[in-house]
Simulated assay, not measured.
Amino acid sequence: MNNIKDILDNLYCIYNKIEYVHPDPLEFLYNYNDIRDREIVGFIASSLAYGRVAQILKSVSLVLDKMGPSPYIFLMNSKPSAIKNTFKGFKHRFADEKNLYAALTGLRFILTEYGSLYDCFIKGVDEKDETVLGCMKYFTKKISSGCTGNPGHLVTAVEKGSACKRLHLFMRWMVRKDDVDPGGWDKIPPSMLIVPLDVHMHKIGRMLGFTNRKQADIVTALEITKGFRKLMPDDPVKYDFTLTRFGIRDDMDIDNLSQMCKL
């Protein structure tokens, strides 16, 4: 296990750098210094983070361009009808203008009720919680309750038992702070985070011996997180960005990772 940690730490030192972020929707968060804007951008970018990465970047860019320099001000100062008209014709794979409009009205509801997405999330935190699952359920239910219409999968239903990859990705961006993850939600310890599980991280988790499960659901995500927690108890998601470069970047083949890890 120590040997694996040494290998992962070495990869982290090499690849956990800004120059390896593109192409990744995380890059949009760097353009916003105000945490109220950054959390909205993070939620939008992670919600649309499925499909081909080029299309993801195009869709996120389109939404943010229409929201102007401050997504927070846009949502707070726009009537629902104005939000609806702004994104008329929007389409990103399975999500259309109605889904986006519903999700944005849900965010607007949270901002009106709590002042920020962070303040809403914190309300759902229980001191007994070992992971963010409980407060994520609270958070997404609150957003859903404020949606005008059906947001579809843009607002994750945590209670259904899926891996909730995009929502855990959002949490990583907002909670962790290093050379890549911008952070800002500083009252939530990184130790509570869960690995954002997709096909690539599932394959890596199996390769590292952290899980034998074939289904990429929340149970598998927790098993893989537990494996990483043995290496980094205070920060089990530390290596997520580094390892997923092998699934995102054209110049970093995931099939070469096992050779690099000598597994």
Rank of each mutant, 00 (worst) to 15 (best):
G89I: 01
G89S: 07
K91H: 08
K91Y: 08
K91C: 05
H92R: 10
R93T: 08
R93V: 14
F94K: 14
A95I: 09
A95H: 09
D96N: 15
D96T: 07
D96C: 10
D96Q: 01
D96P: 02
E97R: 12
K98F: 15
L100E: 11
L100P: 11
Y101T: 03
Y101C: 01
Y101G: 07
A102R: 09
A102V: 08
A102F: 13
L104S: 14
T105L: 07
G106V: 07
G106Q: 10
G106K: 06
R108K: 14
R108C: 05
F109H: 15
F109M: 13
I110W: 04
L111V: 07
L111Y: 05
L111A: 11
T112M: 06
T112Q: 10
E113H: 11
Y114F: 15
Y114I: 06
G115D: 04
S116G: 06
S116W: 05
L117Y: 01
L117R: 04
Y118F: 09
Y118D: 03
Y118Q: 07
D119Q: 13
D119T: 10
D119H: 15
C120N: 02
C120V: 01
C120M: 12
C120Q: 09
F121G: 03
F121W: 14
F121H: 01
I122P: 01
I122Y: 13
K123A: 10
K123D: 15
V125M: 13
D126R: 07
D126S: 13
E127N: 06
E127Y: 14
K128E: 10
D129M: 02
E130N: 11
E130F: 02
T131H: 01
T131S: 01
V132A: 03
V132W: 03
L133W: 02
L133E: 11
L133Q: 12
G134Y: 03
G134W: 02
G134L: 01
C135N: 10
C135E: 07
M136D: 08
M136Q: 10
M136V: 06
M136P: 01
K137M: 07
K137V: 14
F139W: 11
F139H: 08
F139L: 03
T140C: 14
T140M: 13
K141I: 09
K142I: 10
K142Y: 04
K142D: 05
I143H: 07
S144K: 15
S144T: 09
S144N: 03
G146K: 11
G146C: 03
C147W: 04
C147R: 14
T148D: 15
T148R: 14
T148I: 13
N150L: 13
N150F: 13
P151I: 06
P151Q: 04
G152I: 09
G152T: 12
G152E: 04
G152P: 11
H153Q: 08
H153K: 03
L154S: 09
L154F: 04
V155W: 04
V155A: 06
V155Y: 04
T156Q: 10
T156N: 11
T156V: 15
